[in-house]
């Protein structure tokens, strides 16, 4: 490798660049649209695939049949959790945020969300969603503020 003369970082020119797309707009999809409409009403939908129940609903089942939309009617528990100390850019957060995966009892899948601030996370914790006031809901997952134990 005689041709390769290592240079210091300063000897190579660097150019700045940025992501050129100003904004991404993601459509919710077939089930996603109905999931969104239900969220606005304070309800969470899942889907029935044969004898399995799955949340969130994704229109199609693992075997490629079409899923049937149903409301989640059972209690939710915390499956996993993690505590977050820094934001997306590496800045220290004032208060750690607890992210949880909640799953309805006997169902597959689940939702990633926040645990109510100040609550000590625990696997198996029984939780319920706390929604934003109805007039502020837009059908996105942040219509739910966080999950609280009861």
């Amino acid at each position: 490798m005689s041709w390769w003369k290592p240079r210091s970082h300063e000897d190579v020119i660097f150019y700045p660049g940025r992501q050129e797309t100003e904004e991404y707009v993601y459509t919710p999809g077939i089930h996603g649209k109905q999931f969104a409409e239900a969220l606005i009403k304070g309800k969470i939908l899942g889907m029935k695939c044969g004898d399995k129940f799955i949340v969130p609903p994704t229109t199609f089942c693992p075997d490629f049949s079409e899923g049937e939309l149903v409301e989640v009617d059972t209690e939710w528990t915390v499956q996993y959790y993690t505590e977050v100390y820094r934001d997306l850019y590496g800045n220290q957060l004032e208060e750690p945020v607890v992210m949880i995966l909640v799953q309805p009892l006997g169902w597959e899948g689940g939702l990633i969300h926040y645990l109510k601030p100040g609550i000590k996370p625990e696997i198996g914790l029984r939780v319920r969603p706390v929604f934003k006031p109805e007039e502020e809901r837009r059908g996105t997952i942040d219509d739910i503020l966080y999950w609280e134990p009861y």
Partner: peptide, 19 residues
């Protein structure tokens, strides 16, 4: 130009039709 379906829903629709 613009479809409601998510990318995976589009993939599913086409794949299912092919099957």
């Amino acid at each position: 130009r613009r479809l409601l379906e998510t990318p995976r829903e589009l993939a599913w629709e086409a794949a299912k039709m092919a099957l």
